[in-house]
Amino acid sequence: MTQLLEALAWIADPTRWSGPGSIPVRLLEHLWYTLLGVGIAALVAIPVGLLVGHTRRGRGPVVALSGAARALPTLGLVTLFGLWLGIGLTAPVLAFVILAIPSLLAGAYSACEAVDPRTVDAARAQGMTEWQILTRVEVPLGLPLLIGGVRLAAVQVVATVMLASYIGNGGLGRFIFLGLNLSDYPQMLGGSILVVALALVIDLALRLVERLTAPRGAART
């Protein structure tokens, strides 16, 4: 337990809370990379996922893709792109985007799919256009699932951003790898605690959003 205390002391050390390479800087870097990765992936994956879910076409390839992507080792992708594309933001962000896409895709198509087909049929029979069915029926009713996909993607990317520190990028993973190189266990542990805290905060925040976006009136099953 002394090591845990040392790690907490490492975090609490005021010199780590200002200047370049300090905890707030690394934290912001971490958040920024996460936002970048999930944001770009969302621009691609959510429209495609909604299209697949709404038309119920192309579900097979999407499911297969999400399944296969789960087998992809994140560390392998990060080091591969790092070696390929060199230092800079392109390599890690490409990896983040690729790893975020399956969860977002799955969230978006299951959001549409979870809506009772009879409700969609009735909406169409009332004279809603396909766009109105998507935006006024499927998305509002499936929003929690859509957000759930964003949550899984975000959590995945937070972990990957940490690994990307290994190939020289910023983010909270820096502390872990620095500690690893120096055999400085308190620093590794301190960095780990920070990453875990960040992941949990993001996870809980998005869970809250899921709750808040659950359509009122729709009986949850």
């Binding site: 009735a122 909406a123 004279g127 359509p215």
Partner: peptide
């Protein structure tokens, strides 16, 4: 469709 009324078995009301 907007000019024709349609009633179905499971009411098909929008739950939200």
């Amino acid at each position: 469709r907007r000019s024709i009324g349609y009633v179905m078995q499971a009411s098909g009301l929008l739950p939200h």
